[in-house]
Simulated assay, not measured.
Amino acid sequence: MKENNLIVFILTVGVFGILNTEMGFIGILPNIADQFGVSVATAGWLVSIFAIGVAISGPTMPLLFSRLNRKKVMVLVLSIFVAGNVISIFTSSFTVLLIARLIPALFHPVYVSLAFSVAANSVKIKDVPKAISKIFIGVSAGMVIGVPIASFMANMFNLQVALSFFAIVNFLVLISTLLFIPSIPVNERISYGSQLKILKKSLTWFSILTALLFNAAIFAVFSYLAEYLQTVTNVSANVTSFILLIYGAANVIGNIWAGKLLTSNPMKTMVYVPVLVGLLYIILFFTGQFTFPAAVLIFFWGILAGIGANLTQYVVSSAATEAPDFANGLFLSSVNIGTTVGAAAGGLFIASLGTSHVILAGIFAALLSLLFIWLRNTKYTAVVETTERKLQEKASALT
């Protein structure tokens, strides 16, 4: 049991390192622009190209590596990330830096999908949601905590120190993986054709669209939260940073709670979370100009977003248990596309109606996600009932 806990811990830190490499660049874009003599907008491509790489490789790369020894694949991916980090530290070419970002991005879904699968296989079936929630703590930490840490290091020391932080985390996880994670061969090698069959199921597509739309509901607003706080709530940059930190801490709390909620009653959790997000958005729409209510609402929103991240992974993975790695890859691709769609929708609402109305984009996406949750759960219940009936018929035939 202790060995399994150690494996889950290493995977959690590993996911933190991967997400830290992806999102941490957000906090150092001005430093990169100065270092490489490009505009901040051009430097922003370092974030965009990573997200594009993840979205493209999400459905394919986990599938391609699904039949190989898990430990060997994780070592390969971590080695690629360390190499990309080291190149980023020493290169003086912005083009080389872009390439050093794109190649690891293509392998990002491989490690994260494996982290979910290996964590799930390291515990008893009833404890799977709790193990997955621990992995999501690494995801949240990488997305939220990595940004201020990298920004602090770049401003306090220099850009190379911040980039070294990414490299050191991934290197330590690589060594820990080599030393403490045992060989994990794939005992049952599922053919690529068998895994691709999950794409024929309407349940899979309802689940993918649920994950995409819920993530769009979160990021339609979160992508512009700093601007919202400074223009609508009218708080200072320092207060904005503090509230964003509150959101990040709440996100981690949500990840912890998610394991318990999805273990006890996943179907109700699927319905309640988007409903609560929608209601919270409606309240925020009318009270967002007041600092304290906005801060409190954003704290609870962070909790719901943390639960929702676990929820969307569960929605997709439970719909395609016969191809877990491929399903996790589809999940990663769908939420990345959801992030892009949500940010684009939020931008359109801001451009046409103003910053305060960005919340309407989140409400609309939350309602759509609720619709697809209903379609998904209806189909899921029908599939379960059909499977149980077939098993009963077989049992009756045998007796």
Rank of each mutant, 00 (worst) to 15 (best):
Met1Pro: 10
Glu3Val: 07
Leu6Val: 14
Val15Gly: 03
Gly17Asn: 03
Gly24Asp: 00
Ile26Arg: 11
Ala33Trp: 07
Gln35Phe: 15
Ala43Gly: 09
Gly44Ala: 09
Trp45Leu: 15
Ser48Phe: 08
Leu64Pro: 10
Phe65Ile: 12
Leu68Thr: 04
Met74Asn: 11
Val75His: 04
Ser79Met: 08
Asn85Asp: 15
Val86Lys: 04
Ile87Val: 15
Ser88Met: 05
Phe90Leu: 12
Thr91Gln: 05
Ser92Met: 12
Ala100Phe: 08
Ala105Ser: 15
Phe107Arg: 00
His108Glu: 08
Pro109Tyr: 03
Ser117His: 04
Ser122Asn: 09
Asp127Tyr: 04
Pro129Ile: 03
Lys130Phe: 05
Lys130His: 06
Ala131Trp: 05
Phe136Leu: 14
Ile145Leu: 14
Ile145Thr: 09
Gly146Asn: 05
Gly146Lys: 08
Ala150Ser: 15
Phe152Arg: 03
Phe152Leu: 10
Ala154Ile: 01
Phe157Met: 05
Val161Asp: 00
Val161His: 02
Ser164Cys: 03
Ala167Met: 12
Ala167Gln: 06
Ile168Thr: 12
Val169Trp: 11
Asn170Cys: 12
Phe171Glu: 01
Leu172Met: 13
Ile175Arg: 03
Leu179Tyr: 05
Pro185Lys: 13
Val186Phe: 10
Val186Ala: 10
Ile190Cys: 09
Ser194Leu: 11
Gln195Glu: 15
Ser202Asn: 12
Thr204Tyr: 05
Thr204Leu: 14
Thr210Met: 08
Ala216Met: 13
Phe219Cys: 09
Val221Trp: 04
Tyr224Gly: 07
Tyr224Arg: 09
Gln230Arg: 15
Val232Tyr: 08
Asn234Ser: 14
Ser241Ile: 08
Phe242Gln: 07
Leu244Trp: 02
Gly248Tyr: 06
Val252Pro: 00
Asn255Cys: 12
Ile256Trp: 11
Lys260Cys: 00
Leu261Met: 14
Leu261Arg: 01
Leu262Cys: 07
Leu262Asp: 00
Tyr272Asn: 08
Leu276Asn: 03
Leu279Tyr: 03
Gly288Asp: 06
Phe292Lys: 06
Pro293Ala: 11
Ala294Lys: 02
Phe299Val: 06
Gly302Arg: 08
Ile303Met: 13
Leu304Asn: 00
Ala309Gly: 11
Tyr314Gly: 01
Ser317Pro: 01
Ala319Trp: 04
Ala319Asp: 03
Ala320Cys: 10
Ala320Trp: 08
Ala323Tyr: 11
Pro324Thr: 12
Phe326His: 09
Ala327Gly: 07
Ala327Lys: 07
Ser333Trp: 05
Ser333Phe: 04
Ser334Phe: 03
Val335His: 00
Ile337Trp: 07
Gly338Leu: 12
Val341Met: 14
Gly342His: 10
Ala344Pro: 01
Ala344Gln: 11
Leu348Met: 14
Leu348Asn: 09
Phe349Val: 08
Phe349Arg: 11
Ile359Arg: 02
Ala361Met: 06
Ala361Trp: 01
Phe364Asn: 06
Ala366Thr: 14
Phe372Ile: 12
Phe372Val: 10
Leu375Ser: 10
Asn377His: 06
Thr378Ser: 15
Thr381Ala: 11
Ala382Met: 08
Glu388Met: 13
Arg389Pro: 00
Lys390Phe: 11
Leu391Trp: 09
Ala395Ile: 13
Ser396Met: 13
Leu398Asn: 10
